[in-house]
């Protein structure tokens, strides 16, 4: 029986870069966030997205990466097209909107991939090995687990509102913002309280509160592959920052 359970735990649906240590993935995400703010050339930004798409697609995320790269190209072309149209207020708004989306696409790509390919147990062990106190590890782990669930909860609340006939239109949202916030936020909060109770019961029985050192069946180590990957990521991003100041940064890719 015990060996069966062990086998079940050791089964890995992931391969390639998805097996990296959660700390390594988090480090890469933070670096990406910093760099994507300072990289501005169109060609260099595209290389940045492509590089991380390759990294994601090496670990169970090929479809997702392809989708994000396609949407990146589409938004780029659309925002270039918009430069030829000038509507007084709207074109300024759309340019800012386009830039925001372009900056967010690589972060969303890597962030969502990390959420899907990281076991929360591994993350917990990894965070504890960083000697973070429980007051940081537990909320962080719970939060990463809960962010995807919030979307489902929101849709369920909207369904219930539809059933009871108090669904709001855009017009109602603008004219009565307080009521809208109340209708959506209060049920969501009720749900949060309930989920907390359940999670606490489930977590306590599995030893979430343990202060002692944790052991893991799957090995969670910051070892050679992680170091190599971190150094490769640093080099890649550093090169991009350097390229951005050379003539490559001024290449205009998207023109019609």
């Amino acid at each position: 029986m015990e060996s069966k359970i062990k086998q079940k735990i050791m089964e890995q649906p992931f391969r390639g870069t998805a097996l990296l240590d959660p700390r390594c993935k988090g480090l890469l995400l933070i670096l990406l966030g910093f760099v994507s703010y300072f990289v501005n050339g169109e060609a260099v930004s595209l290389i940045l997205v492509m590089g991380f798409a390759l990294f994601v697609s090496l670990g169970n995320g090929a479809k997702w990466a392809a989708k994000m790269v396609a949407s990146y190209a589409m938004v780029s072309i659309l925002s270039t097209l918009l430069k030829y149209v000038s509507i007084p207020v709207l074109s300024v708004m759309m340019s800012v909107f386009g830039v925001t989306i372009l900056k967010f696409i690589p972060i969303v790509m890597v962030g969502n991939w990390i959420l899907r390919t990281t076991h929360m147990d591994d993350l917990m062990v990894a965070l504890q090995r960083m000697r973070l106190p429980q007051s940081v590890t537990i909320p962080l782990v719970v939060m990463f687990r809960y962010i995807p669930t919030l979307g489902i909860e929101y849709r369920m609340i909207r369904n219930t509102m539809d059933i009871r006939g108090i669904s709001d239109t855009l017009w109602k949202r603008i004219t009565r913002p307080v009521a809208t916030v109340e209708y959506i936020l209060i049920p969501l909060l009720m749900r949060c309280l309930k989920v907390t109770d359940e999670l606490a019961a489930s977590g306590t029985t599995r030893g979430l509160e343990l202060e002692e050192k944790r052991y893991a069946l799957r090995d969670v180590h910051f070892s050679l592959p992680e170091y190599l990957m971190s150094i490769a990521g640093l080099l890649f991003l550093g090169t991009l920052l350097f390229l951005d100041h050379t003539s490559i940064g001024e290449i205009i890719l998207w023109r019609v």
């Binding site: 909320p139 809960y146 907390t196 606490a200 979430l208």
Partner: peptide, 19 residues
């Protein structure tokens, strides 16, 4: 003293606030 249940509540509600 804060216990595990409090930490879980903090995590869930902070996620909501941040979104």
């Amino acid at each position: 003293k804060l216990n595990a249940k409090d930490f879980i509540l903090i995590g869930v509600l902070t996620a909501l606030m941040w979104i």
